[in-house]
Design a protein around this nucleic acid. Structure first.
Length: 270
DNA sequence: ACATGAGCCTGTGGGC
DNA sequence: TGCCCACAGGCTCATG
């Protein structure tokens, strides 16, 4: 799901509301999501009496930890956290953390593309560039992976081995804001355009985090609120609409790239 | 080294 | 109302 801003929103909300609580019980409601759960290890990490440390984000993954170990939660396309009504189990509630104070937290994921992976070092989760750091982007954009590559720049922006956290929505929105077509090959993107992307991406992601992420279709925040950044989607899912740049008479187009939809204005994105 | 398509799943929205 | 199809914020694999 959830790209960086949505995962960050969950991390902040969970930190605010659950960090420091003592676990009384840990429940898995099925044996797998995308991959089998490592049940013994998860049960040890979230064993009775352990304290949930401050959740945080690495790339698109959410880290849940206690003094017994760390777990990276990937939300896939449809994963989310909501307060649990345990012992009542919500539809698609696959994991429940129950705390001593009587509160409970549910991991819900209809499509089950997510996974829970215990880890020891952060480098197991991501070694990619941090898209919140302009310097980090400038550095990766000057690597051969970008400067010499014949793949599309949109595809490369979404490559989690290169940059950790940008998915379809924010790739498309960043390219619109930078005036670069998603169809352009990396090797054809100019230095000043990479510089522009480096400035735009952290700013846009920060703005999205501040808005609580993007809500498209069913994604909700911890307490069911919608995010606000979808109001700021300038091209995403706007095929056929007028370009949002005041004086531009362009019409937003859609095309499929690497199996994913891209939208762009053919007049202001070359 | 690239793109494409299928697959992992369920849910939703549009067209008829 | 229902049925069918396309599509969905991610990622990996096989194939060309």
């Amino acid at each position: 799901m959830p790209e960086l801003p949505e995962v960050e929103s969950f991390a902040l909300a969970l930190k605010r509301e659950y960090a420091g609580k003592r676990l009384s019980e840990f429940r898995l409601h099925r044996k797998d999501l995308r991959f089998p759960f490592d049940k013994p290890v998860l049960e040890r990490i979230f064993s009775r009496g352990s304290v949930l440390l401050e959740p945080y984000r690495i790339a698109k993954q959410l880290v849940l930890s206690t003094e017994n170990g760390m777990v990276a939660v990937s939300l896939g396309m449809s994963g989310s956290f909501i307060p649990s009504s345990f012992p009542k189990i919500a539809l698609h509630e696959h994991v429940t953390l129950i705390f001593e104070d009587g509160s409970a937290l549910a991991y819900v994921d209809p499509r089950r593309f997510g996974f829970w992976k215990p880890f020891v070092a952060a480098s197991e989760i991501s070694t990619a560039a941090d898209p919140l750091q302009e310097e980090s982007l400038l550095e990766i954009f000057s690597c051969k992976k970008f400067t010499d590559s014949e793949r599309s720049v949109k595809d490369a922006l979404m490559d989690q081995n290169l940059i950790g956290g940008i998915g379809n929505i924010y790739a498309v929105e960043a390219l619109f804001r930078a005036g670069v077509s998603p169809l352009r090959k990396c090797s054809r993107v100019k230095h000043n355009e990479y510089r522009k992307l480096s400035e735009i991406i952290p700013r846009m992601l920060t703005q999205a985090i501040d808005a609580g992420g993007s809500t498209v279709s069913t994604y909700r925040r911890l307490h069911g609120e919608s995010g606000g950044f979808q109001e700021l989607h300038l091209v995403y899912d706007r095929e056929g609409e007028r370009c949002s740049n005041q004086r531009c008479k362009g019409i937003i187009r859609r095309a499929t790239q690497t199996g994913r939809s891209s939208w762009w204005c053919p007049r202001c994105q070359k």
